[in-house]
Amino acid sequence: MKDQEATAEKEQQILRLGEEYKNAHNAAELSALIRNSRDLLGSIPKAKSTKIIKTLIDHFSQIPNSLDLQIQTCKDTVEWSKSEKRLFLKQSLETRLAALYAENRMYTAALDLIGPLLKELKRLDDKMVLLEVQLLESKVYHALHNLAKARAALTAARTSANAIYCPPLLQASLDMQSGILHAEERDYKTAYSYFYETLEGYSSQDDPKAVLALKYMLLCKIMLNQSDDVNSITNGKLALKYPGPDVDAMKAVAKAHQNRSLHDFEKALATYRGELSNDTIVRSHLAKLYDTLLEQNLIRIIEPFSRVEIAHIAKLVQLPTDQVEKKLSQMILDKAFHGVLDQGAGCLIVYEEPVVDQVYDSTLDTLKNMGSVVESLYQKAATLS
């Protein structure tokens, strides 16, 4: 009895020390505590020791600049769990390690770990952990811009979720990833619906990621050219719970887009750099939006002219001349309008829209159809002979 009490007291001491190291932001001591506690943790029931180890490793997330040490500690603990034949702990830690690799942009290492882990989980039919790993796989493939595999992994994750009870936070994560992938396909209407579901899910659990879902909802409205809706959404009952720079950033972008002002757009990007440029999801979509807005402004400016100085266009859009020249060149190649750049004179020469003669297209279609008929007749003749 005394031995059990002494062991229980040691367990509490380990947890208290871990809490102190977390509060003191002492990642090195926390790592040493996990390493030095293995002998004791190996002698107590597996369920209890697993809970303690996971709690201690979770403390790393509260310590700034500890990602590298957290990865190393996770790797060491995975090896220990293998030697101790603790399968459940190994799977849990490998899932955590793959997520850490993804966070550290070590995507190849994450996929190398995810592949064997998925096979193992499918064999054991552990659908809850399987769901988490499939969702993580989708996120990694999205980060690698492999949308086909990201969608396939997400579909597999949703299939696993349908077979079990899916906790609200995990369901919200699934909805978030669905919204992100639909937005990548420029299906912003469907993406908005998923982000709304995500907001409700995170909000019901008081999860701070709710503000991210709200931010992406506003992004979808802007990309749908429905910037007017941004204010009504942010003044809604649910959104009012999440004021802050993320929402302010999207409101600034919406206002700039509504006014078709490149100057205001760039000002918003500069003012809210952390909320806009540092968010990879928002940054990629705003880059497309900025490009579209720039094209619209340039076409509106050059429309009355047949010949205009590039410096004059740059002055009107308040952008550097070389940037405007590069964009005009791209628009000419994309046939957004017809013209040429006279770089010697520093001018843009705009041509009238050419009248397309349909005779050539019709002739090509006729020849193509004749070729098909001749081929068909040749095949029939070959069968007769």
Rank of each mutant, 00 (worst) to 15 (best):
A161P: 05
Q205L: 11
Y192L: 15
A156P: 01
Y188S: 10
G201M: 09
E200I: 10
L219I: 04
Q205N: 06
E184T: 00
A163C: 06
P168I: 06
A213Q: 05
L169E: 09
D175I: 00
L214R: 08
D207W: 11
S193F: 06
L174P: 04
T155W: 03
A163V: 04
P167L: 11
E184S: 05
L212K: 14
A183Q: 05
G179P: 02
S160Q: 11
K209G: 00
D207S: 11
A153Y: 04
R186Y: 08
Y192D: 13
Y192G: 08
L169A: 09
Q171G: 06
D175R: 09
L219S: 01
S173A: 14
S178D: 13
S173D: 12
A157I: 11
A148I: 08
H182D: 15
A191P: 01
A156F: 03
E184Y: 09
I180H: 07
A152Y: 05
G179V: 07
N162V: 00
L199D: 02
S160G: 08
E197G: 01
L169C: 05
L199R: 09
A156G: 02
Y202C: 08
S160H: 07
A213P: 10
Y216V: 12
S173R: 15
Y194G: 02
T190H: 04
N146H: 10
A148E: 15
Y216Q: 12
L181V: 02
F195T: 03
G179L: 09
L214T: 01
Y188W: 15
L181S: 04
K215R: 13
A191W: 05
A156Q: 13
T198G: 06
L219H: 00
Q205H: 06
L212W: 07
A172C: 08
P168A: 13
A156L: 13
Y202Q: 08
R151V: 07
A183G: 06
Y202A: 06
E200V: 10
P168C: 10
F195C: 08
E197H: 10
T190L: 15
M176K: 10
T198P: 11
Y192I: 05
V211F: 04
L174K: 02
A183H: 02
A157S: 07
R158Q: 14
Y196G: 01
Q177F: 00
L174Q: 01
T155K: 12
G201N: 07
L214K: 07
D187N: 15
A210G: 03
P167Y: 09
Q177Y: 00
